[in-house]
Design a protein around this nucleic acid. Structure first.
Lengths: 212, 212
DNA sequence: CCTTATCTGTCATCGACTGTCACTTGGCAG
DNA sequence: CTGCCAAGTGACAGTCGATGACAGATAAGG
């Protein structure tokens, strides 16, 4: 399985070339300032070929995103039965947020995600695309949750609400972690966010205390 | 204030012309199939002028979006002090979801939102833009919630988590309502969604019961 | 080998969007 | 009323992302 045909290997090769060339250019020049022609040049490929690999310029950065969601979903589905939904979601999320990994490949993926985060924050077009991928991930999460609970996604509001709330918690935690206390481990902030999520009822019960 | 200068009136006029021309063309031909040139022609304006009014083709449909969020925010801030946060969010949302209004202008706005909903569902580009606006609205909601509770948005995770969860609830309810039982009033579904939100804790406590 | 499906480069084209410049016109002071 | 200023517009040219069509190259498999 290491060598799956010459054709496949070459495809993988040009794909990787396109990705790393893009990353390098995006980081040095910025996303908007980099043209597809430049990427194609740097990757020794025609511009037309770029679009045979990626539907849009933004998509280069989200090549591994789907796989990451796969990992999360697998982690969720592997949780022991009998555990609560909240705990299962929390642990599955923490599993993929774990920064220290023995696997070299995993570490690369997380460094990659880190750079993507910076770039997304710097470009509106990328931010849009990111939102779109997040939305898709959220929908997949809702499907998984519905399956775990054995309920129908099309008639029950709960899976999507839970998925959205959980994703918002993680997202908010990550964002806060990025812009302030990076000395605290990310997993701690995520844990805190999940804790809040499980006590949302209390938050919603807080009486309004409008300032004068 | 009815007539605020000839110049202002003319601007309002071409803006309206662009919007209604866009709507008409989008509905009949679809969003992607409609070019900016066609819109400009129909509105008796040069294509360049279109982009002086709207930054992108999609933005024509979201011209009133900001105002709608303003309304929601005003409704939220006007809730009586002492009421719970959850109740305040629910009632503010129901206030703007109310389909029957004496105000002619309001009724137009809701018909408009209805058409936008259909179009967004039919075009990926519009869906992206819609997500972006939703995200901005969510952020504004978080700011408002932080203000109501008198807490700091930059150190406390709660406002954003609550905003995201509430928005997801409304969004899910609306979507479900659209694709199935439109005989039930929308407000009822929204109410149900909020009810689930206030009992999220219980949902998260459900033990996993994976199917074989 | 040799055929065939796949992949790629070249070329042409479309449409969204932007910068620039000249022209028109409403707002306003004198 | 008149002339100046700034705002709004049109015309033009150009960039860039994205797509379709066709022809040439090259792995895969008999």
């Amino acid at each position: 399985m290491a060598t799956a045909g010459l054709r496949e290997r070459k495809k993988r090769q040009t794909r990787d070339a396109l990705i790393s060339a893009s990353m390098r250019l995006f980081v040095t020049q910025g996303f908007e300032a980099t043209t597809v022609d430049q990427i194609a040049d740097a990757a020794q490929v025609s511009p037309r070929t770029f679009f045979r690999y990626f539907a849009a310029k933004e998509d280069v950065l989200f090549d591994d995103f789907e796989a990451e969601v796969d990992r999360w979903e697998a982690a969720l589905l592997a949780r022991p039965r009998g555990e609560s939904l909240g705990a299962a979601l929390r642990e599955a999320t923490l599993a993929i947020a774990e920064p220290f990994s023995s696997d070299e490949h995993r570490r690369d993926a997380q460094r990659f995600a880190e750079i993507r985060f910076e770039l997304v924050a710097s470009s509106p077009a990328l931010a849009r695309r990111s939102l779109e991928f997040d939305g898709r991930a959220q929908e997949r999460a809702a499907v998984a949750i519905a399956r775990l609970l054995g309920i129908d996604l099309d008639s029950d509001l709960r899976p999507r609400i839970v998925a959205a709330a959980a994703m918002a918690a993680v997202w908010t935690a990550t964002r806060l972690w990025h812009q302030s206390d990076q000395d605290r481990p990310l997993t701690a902030v995520v844990r805190e966010a999940y804790d809040l999520l499980e006590h949302l009822e209390e938050v919603l019960a807080i009486p309004l205390s409008r300032l004068p």
